[in-house]
Design a binder for these strands. Structure first.
Lengths: 203, 203
DNA sequence: AGATATCGGAACCGATCGGTCAATAACTTC
DNA sequence: GAAGTTATTGACCGATCGGTTCCGATATCT
């Protein structure tokens, strides 16, 4: 695990667990709304330990965000691959969006990434880069999925996969953004079925 | 101007100007990211004065948000009414979204309301109510506009105005949410023309 | 065993946080 | 012009902010 010639005491905490705890606080309270002591409480660490592992709060946020995106990507991938067809994959993914938007307690609704876009502050360039890359990757993944669905005739072919992916991603972001103040599950489900309807091939 | 029987020293500042200044800071830095001294700097007021007019920071935010929404509503109304037809009104409104998403400097991109949804904190119930009401009102306005367009054959009639309005609002929120980290005007314009395309009647 | 280096813990830092208050100033009414 | 009312100002408050530094303890490498 550790490769340096001589090394001292290894860290006792599990980095991923700590990052997950950080994801939780940042998701709940946002970057500015999260204090160091919030983080300490959530992780169970002490200031000294945490500042040995991270330069500052900003880096904690970046690492937590990356962890969140890594997990989100993996889970989405899994959900899609388990589906019986490309379109079924899209449907399953949208169902997960509904769950993320509604099932958890309200302070955790939506998506850490979408909330962090809004939180954008002038001096968080690295975080912005991470988010931009995540958007690009998500749209690319969607485009591939849509293209596959198109070639099976599951999705309309009169519009390019890229355009559809861009628009679908935008739409999903909208659901996740408004989900923070919206309480109706029925509403979100209506939005999802609307999206699926728009993807349908012309009758 | 002032109607009370006896009154003391009149306030020297213009409330709307102060609210506009607050809108600016909150838009740029978010609720938690904005400090009292940021607000003082932006408004030119002193702490004492501002706390005479507002209970606390939370109320400053609520009043500023209401002011923002009032202006947004009025401007949107004006843009729509000036248009030559309901659909042209929708187009003009979407054009304004593009401008809001791209033209200003990056810290002011998007929409204060959408950013504030993300900023949602547990103890800001009043702000959440304001935002919920704004969403409802915006969707209602869109639905009316869409209904008018439908009855003129400008917009597809196979879906209810209410569904279309809900979806369109969601889509717009998505544009405004991602606009904070997105730099491409071309992208947003593509998204807008996609939306208009989806509203078209079947050929 | 001995050397090394990081560990967890806590005291400590200056700065800033949101918020209060008493004194003063400007206005209306009588 | 006196009385009553309210806004302005700036000093002041305790609490907390993000971050640093020191410490003895302890796990790994040679």
């Amino acid at each position: 695990m550790n490769t340096s010639k001589t090394m001292g005491r290894p860290r006792e905490f599990d980095m991923d667990e700590v990052l997950d705890a950080m994801v939780g606080v940042f998701w709940e309270k946002g970057y500015e709304g999260t204090s160091l002591s919030d983080i300490l409480e959530a992780t169970g660490l002490q200031k000294g330990s945490i500042y040995k592992a991270f330069q500052n709060k900003q880096e904690m946020f970046e690492k937590a965000l990356e962890r969140y995106l890594r997990l989100l990507h993996a889970e989405t991938q899994a959900v899609v691959e388990k589906a019986s067809s490309p379109l079924a994959g899209i449907e399953a993914m949208l169902k997960r969006v509904v769950e993320e938007s509604c099932s958890k307690q309200s302070d955790f609704r939506g998506c850490l990434a979408v909330r962090s876009m809004a939180d954008r502050t002038a001096h968080a360039e690295r975080a912005i880069e991470i988010l931009q890359a995540a958007v690009a990757s998500a749209e690319k993944g969607l485009a591939n999925l849509i293209e596959a669905a198109q070639s099976q005739g599951e999705i309309r072919c009169d519009l390019s996969a890229k355009s559809l992916a861009e628009a679908l991603y935008c739409y999903i972001s909208g659901m996740l953004a408004t989900s923070r103040i919206t309480t109706s599950k029925a509403r979100t489900e209506r939005l999802v079925s609307f999206a699926l309807h728009m993807l349908q091939p012309a009758a």
